[in-house]
Simulated scan of single mutants.
Amino acid sequence: MLLASALGVFLSEPQWFTRWLAPLTDNGAPAIYDRDSLWRLALAHLLLVVEASAIGGGAAIAAAVIVTRASAADFLPIARSIANIAQTFPPVAVLALAVPALGFGAKPVLFSLTLYGLLPVFESTLAGLQRIPDATREAAFGMGMNAWQRLWQVELPLAGPVIFHGVRLALVINLGTATIGSTVAASSLGDVIIAGLQTSNTAFIVQGAIVIAALAVLIYEGLGLVALWRWPAR
C-alpha cells in the first residue's frame, strides 16, 4: 500500500521529487521528464502489457491443453520448441522484423511481447495439467463427464494455481520488455529512459526505471494476493 501510494504521488506530482533527482543531471538539464505525462505513459505501458499478455497467455494455454490430449501428444515437442524459440529470440530483433510488415507504433510491440510471454504460460499450463493424477481423471470419467466437462470442471480448476503463476510471471517479464516499444514510436515508459539515454540525463533514466520497477513489484505482489485469495493454502 505504501509503495502504491508513493508511486501514485510520483506519477501525479513528479516535480515534488526534483530535489532528489537534480543531483543526477548536468549543465542545468531538467530533472523531471516533462515531454509527456508520466501517468499517460504508465497507462499506455500497462495497456500494451495487458493486451499482449492476454493474447499470448490465451494462445499458450490453448496450445498446452491441445498437446496434453492423447490425440495430439505427438505435437508436444514442436509446441515446446516454438515456445522456447519465441522466448529466446531477442525482442529487439522481433521488432526489427515486424516493423516492415506492421509499421511503427503499438502493433509490432504487441507482436513482440505476445511471443515473449508464451513460454512461462505454456510451461506452467503443461506442468499443471500433467501433474493431475490419472485417478482423478478416471473418477471424472466414471461420473459420466465427457472430455470437455473433464477439462473445464476438473483439469483446468486443479491446474489453476500453476497456470496463474505462469501468467503472473509473463506479465512481469512483459512489463520490463515493453520499454523497447519506444524505439518504434509506441508510447510507453521507455520514452523516459530513451530520452535519458539520448541526452545523457541520468535523472530521466532513474525515474523511468523506478516507475517500471515499482509497477512490476505491485503487479507481482498484487497477483500473489489474488492467488492466495483464490487458492488459499491448505
Rank of each mutant, 00 (worst) to 15 (best):
L48R: 07
Y33S: 07
S37D: 12
P30K: 01
V65A: 13
L47E: 01
G56D: 10
A63F: 00
L47C: 09
A31V: 14
D26L: 05
A62Y: 00
R35N: 09
G57M: 00
L46F: 13
R40Y: 10
S37M: 12
A42E: 02
V65W: 10
D36C: 05
A59K: 00
A29W: 10
E51P: 00
L46G: 08
L46C: 13
A42C: 15
V49L: 10
P30I: 09
S37E: 07
V50C: 11
G28E: 05
D34C: 10
A63I: 04
S53I: 02
A62R: 05
A52R: 00
V50I: 14
G58D: 08
L46N: 03
V65N: 09
G28M: 11
V50A: 09
L43W: 13
W39I: 14
A59L: 14
R40M: 11
A31W: 03
D36Y: 08
G28D: 08
Y33Q: 05
S37V: 14
A52K: 01
E51R: 06
A63E: 00
L43P: 12
A44K: 08
A62H: 02
A31R: 01
S37K: 03
I55E: 11
G58Q: 08
A59V: 10
H45I: 11
L43T: 15
Y33K: 06
A63N: 02
W39K: 04
A63K: 00
A64N: 03
A31K: 02
V49K: 00
A60H: 01
A31E: 07
I61Q: 04
V50W: 02
N27K: 07
L48P: 00
A60V: 03
V50N: 01
A44Y: 07
W39H: 03
A52L: 04
L47S: 07
D26F: 12
A29R: 05
H45R: 12
L47Q: 09
A63G: 03
G57H: 05
D36W: 07
D34V: 14
G57P: 04
A63W: 00
D34W: 08
A54M: 15
A60G: 02
I61C: 09
L43V: 15
A54Q: 07
P30N: 07
A54Y: 06
G56H: 03
P30Y: 03
L48S: 10
A44G: 05
A31Q: 04
Y33W: 10
A54F: 15
L47A: 11
R35S: 12
W39G: 06
S37T: 12
S37C: 13
P30E: 04
A60T: 03
I55Q: 13
V65K: 06
L46H: 02
R40Q: 13
D34Q: 14
V50F: 12
A60Y: 01
G56S: 07
N27Y: 14
G56F: 03
R35V: 08
D34K: 04
A62D: 06
D34P: 09
L48H: 03
A42P: 08
I32V: 15
G57N: 04
L43S: 12
I61E: 03
A62N: 02
I32M: 14
P30R: 02
L38C: 06
A54W: 04
N27F: 15
S53T: 12
A44W: 07
A44I: 12
A44P: 11
D26N: 05
E51W: 11
H45Y: 11
V49D: 06
